[in-house]
Design a protein around this nucleic acid. Structure first.
Length: 892
RNA sequence: GCGGGCGUGGUGGAAUGGUAGACACACAGGACUUAAAAUCCUGAGGAGGUAUCUCCGUGCGGGUUCGAGUCCCGCCGCCCGCACCA
């Protein structure tokens, strides 16, 4: 389905005459011009950023790509946007840092190694080379001298230094944690790699295993990470909200319940609640299946052991959780109600209580919590309402199948009666804080966060080795910095399941750096999210001995404009914010927030296709036709193809469009212009190549327009400057466009800037006959201003074409080195304005009045309109509303 | 379930509460051409046969306002995030 008529487009383009300037009728040939300008930029090191440049710094960064082998149109869109920002800010007089690198560790390289017997390193670097070539053909203003890949030894060496500094600073911990374990592949799986409870590759039933793993203590920063979101005013509100929800702060109370009956090691159970005001409505206490007390009770209770095992077998997928019913196991334990003398509550182990939130135990108040209600109905527990809704009556208010969670007034609650929810929470907290159980306060206020510590251990080869050694004598020993880096051994094979590092002959077994006795090297590698959590800082001093040069990092950071996919709204951005704080604490820089401005572009989507066997089929192998009003897809050989849903482009669904054909056929500028046109950048776009021809035509039109303008500029001016309204008209159009385009580019509204540029092109086109008829000095110089600014405006988006045009207009310097023009306010205001005239809110005509004309004048003009007079039919209007310079509305 | 967003011509989309549909794509007609491509010009939300003009029109139903695509309330549909977080 090659939709690009490549041969046709170029059939009429002959070789460019070597010495003569392009004449107006000659077509623009991107195949010749684009490599030329790319070579000039590279030779002049135009986009290499010097640290001692005195201009103010501006750091623009696009999320760096995973080197999958080919760029796709999502990359093109992302990097084009970033490049427009970079070139625009450059023209605005900033020294711009615009680097590029590779997020190069990760699973796909190992998968490729297993499938194709190619070493992950070779596979990765070959992919990088291919993608670098593709990106370079797009003409991005990147500082390639700063390029690195996260799998470069020089990079992960510094990452290991950071890890050790963070370990020393107490920001790293080890703890036991549950993982998805694939018993066939001997590997840990991420949640998304578990499909229907089975490993995505092996198909084996996944087990929950406890493993001791390394964690970054991101939850220590929960409060700071949350409150600092308020200051991220240049972030999309949506992302700020997602981060707030992810951190999930909640204020509550830890309450001790004394054990009344039953054999237990402890004398009390501690629960966490955000609704202590409903304590009088408590009818049970429930423990997580992983709660220590549950584990202990299970020792002598086979039925409980079975129940807990069953809970563990329950899947973690969204679907399972949604449909899972609330189930519990009643233990022999009962506890005393904390505030009602003589009442005891049963203790259950329940499948819906999470161990790693709060205390792993809850009290159930069925009347005011839906889960508790479901549970109570199943096990026939009392349902006592204790919060009365505003419009309800205490005598007949009852809970049926829906818990009441809204506002109200406490009742059935002794000393809380009559208080509003918030007031009651505070009162019960104050009461329990003074009560004592085992000599401790019965209630303690606590703030809880949903955010968990960040587990970074991965039992895989292609990642940054965690630089520690386990010694039986000395315990955990960090690898001394002068012995770094811990290198990934090259001699590994992937024939056997499991982590190659773990079975490597020499990697694992080492001597303890501290005592010299036999010890074991850590064989886990780091989560690849670690690699991408500080690369933005490394770009500021990419070859430094230390992870950063603090002065450099402080000068450039935070990133002024970060651009990337919305899919990274939570994890990557949160981890990077954590890392900035960690790096500040360990002296690597003094910046806590890494990204000042964030822009999240929409995803690029495309239809999916499947063949008769249900295999995904790439769009390039599909032939689409319309038959009897239905779209019908077949393969090149005529096999039937099913058209599937529209999905985000992904390798797995094979609905990725490779931009190479388009770049080869139309050139980079046309592709850049095309992806910026039409769609608002933050919105998802359904990919279609309809429209690329229009972009191509526009690039040709620009070339032609500049050629024609150049002819006019060389005309001998007629000596007398006649008064020509067209001169003012074009200058107004130019200056208004200047102001609007600047605002649109600064606000990343590229589609609107494109529309403004089209309008300016139309205005200039219209002005050509004016100059031809009346080649006055005024008209010729107006044309010069118009056409030169026009070229400057397209330069961030179509940089090669702009350079060619700029040279064609006789400039020695490059347009990318030319300062951005300013709008002259004198041309932005009009002497007269056209006001719409409405009658009862309906448009009936328009009037032209002087700008800022008094209301009376506008009113008189409006009333004298024939259409208005006809409707009024001689009657006086009831009211006339005049909004100066805007509108007149006659009410009758 | 909770939270957030979106809904405008054939299409992508524009529109500080103030002339809805800018700009573009696709389409149709015309000019140039032996012809095509390219280029240029013209047309176009729907209906009332044309121009003038009139009515209708921004998912649906209400409301606020002199005036609503825009603000408020209630629905419908689609998309995204979170998901037993006590």
């Amino acid at each position: 389905m090659v939709a690009y008529p490549i041969s046709r487009l170029f059939s009429s383009i002959g070789p460019r005459p070597v010495l003569s300037m392009a004449n107006a009728s000659e077509r623009y040939n991107p195949r010749e011009q684009e490599p030329h300008w790319q070579k000039v930029w590279a030779e002049k090191k135009t986009f290499e950023t010097s640290n001692d440049d005195p201009r103010p710094p501006y750091y623009v960064l696009e999320m760096f790509p995973y080197p999958s082998g080919r760029i796709h149109v999502g990359h093109v869109r992302n990097y084009t946007m970033g490049d427009v920002v970079a070139r625009f800010q450059r023209a605005k007089g900033k020294k711009v840092l615009h680097p590029m690198g590779w997020d190069a560790f990760g699973m796909p390289a190992e998968n490729a190694a297993m499938a194709n017997k190619v070493h992950p390193r070779d596979w990765t670097y070959e992919n990088i080379a291919a993608m670098r070539k593709q990106l370079q053909s797009m003409g991005f203003s990147l500082d390639w001298s700063r390029e690195f890949a996260t799998c470069d030894e020089e990079y992960y060496h510094r990452q290991q230094m950071l890890f050790i500094d963070m370990l020393d600073a107490g920001l790293v911990t080890r703890k036991s944690s549950k993982v998805n374990w694939d018993p066939v592949d001997h590997t840990v799986l991420a949640n998304e790699q578990v499909i229907d409870g089975r490993g995505w590759r092996s198909g084996a039933l996944v087990e929950q295993r406890e493993l001791t793993q390394w964690f970054f203590k991101i939850s220590d920063f929960a409060e700071d990470l949350l409150s600092a979101i308020d200051g991220l005013t240049d972030w999309p509100e949506k992302v700020r909200l997602m981060q707030r929800n992810w951190i999930g702060r909640s204020e509550g109370l830890r309450v001790l319940f004394e054990i009344a009956d039953g054999e237990a090691d402890q004398q009390s159970v501690e629960v966490f609640t955000t609704r202590p005001d409903t304590l009088f409505g408590a009818s049970f206490v429930a423990l997580s299946p992983d709660h220590p007390m549950a584990t202990q009770l299970a020792k002598d209770d086979p039925a409980l052991t079975d129940f807990i095992a069953e809970c563990h077998r329950m899947g973690t997928s969204a679907e399972v959780i949604e449909t899972a019913e609330k189930r519990g196991y009643r233990t022999p334990i009962t506890v005393k109600h904390p505030v009602i003398e003589g009442v005891t509550l049963p203790v259950y182990v329940a499948n819906f209580v999470l161990m790693d939130y709060g205390t792993g135990a809850i009290f159930g108040c069925p009347a005011h919590d839906q889960r508790d209600l479901d549970f109570a109905r199943k096990y026939d527990l009392p349902v006592i309402p204790v919060v009365l809704p505003p419009d309800a009556n205490a005598d007949d208010f009852a809970i049926d199948t829906e818990a009441y969670t809204g506002p109200g007034v406490a009742f059935n609650s002794a000393f809380l009666d009559g208080m509003e929810v918030e007031e009651a929470k505070d009162a019960i907290a104050r009461f329990l804080e003074t009560e004592k159980v085992e000599g401790k306060p019965q209630g303690v206020r606590q703030v809880n966060y949903r955010l968990r510590d960040w587990g970074i251990s991965r039992q895989r080869y292609w990642g940054c080795p965690i630089p520690v050694i386990h010694c039986d004598t000395c315990g955990i020993v960090p690898v001394p910095k002068d012995q770094l880096p811990v290198r990934l051994p090259a001699d590994v094979e992937f024939d056997t399941p499991g982590n190659p590092l773990d079975r490597h002959p020499t990697f694992k077994h080492v001597d303890c750096p501290s005592c010299g006795s036999r010890a074991r090297r850590e064989t886990d590698t780091m989560d690849t999210f670690v690699d991408s959590s500080w690369y933005f800082a490394r770009f500021t001093a990419p070859r430094a001995e230390n992870p950063t040069i603090p002065e450099m990092a402080n000068e450039w950071l935070p990133v002024d404009q970060y651009i990337g996919g919305i899919e990274h709204a939570i994890l990557h951005l949160l981890y990077s914010r954590f890392f900035a704080r960690a790096m500040s604490r360990t002296g690597h820089m003094d910046v806590d927030e890494p990204f000042k401005g964030l822009f999240t572009q929409g995803m690029v989507t495309h239809e999916t296709y499947k063949d008769a066997e249900g295999n995904w089929v790439s769009p390039s192998e599909v032939v689409l036709q319309v038959s009897e009003g239905q779209r019908v897809a077949t393969s090149a050989t005529g096999e039937p193809i099913t058209i599937g849903s529209i999905e985000k482009m992904s390798k797995s669904k094979r609905n990725v469009i490779d931009p190479d054909d388009m770049i080869a056929g139309y050139g980079a500028d046309t592709v850049r212009w095309f992806v910026l046109s039409d769609s608002p950048p933050e919105r998802d776009v359904q990919w279609t190549e309809a429209g690329i021809e229009g972009a191509w035509r526009f690039s040709q039109r620009v070339h032609k327009l500049v050629g024609e303008a150049r002819e006019l500029l060389s005309l001998e001016p007629s000596t007398i400057d006649e008064e020509d309204p067209r001169t003012t008209e074009i200058l107004k159009a130019v200056h208004k466009a200047t102001a609007l385009i600047e605002a649109d580019l600064a606000g990343l509204r590229f589609n609107r800037a494109v529309a403004q540029i089209y309008e300016l092109a139309n205005a200039i086109q219209k002005f050509i006959p004016a100059v031809t008829e009346s080649p006055s000095l005024a008209n010729i110089s107006a044309m010069r201003v118009a056409i030169e600014r026009f070229v400057q405006f397209i330069a961030p988006m179509m940089p090669h074409l702009a350079e060619s045009c700029w040279a064609n207009l006789g400039h020695q310097a490059m347009v990318c080195d030319t300062p951005w023009p300013e709008a002259d306010p004198a041309y932005l205001v009009d002497d007269t304005v056209v006001l719409a005239v409405q009658v009862n809110g309906k448009r009936r005509g328009e009037i032209e009045v002087p700008k800022d004309a008094p209301s009376t004048q506008a009113e008189a003009a409006a009333l004298s309109l024939e259409a208005v007079a006809r409707i009024l039919d001689g009657n006086p209007p009831r009211k006339v509303i005049v909004v100066p310079n805007r509108i007149v509305n006659v009410v009758c």
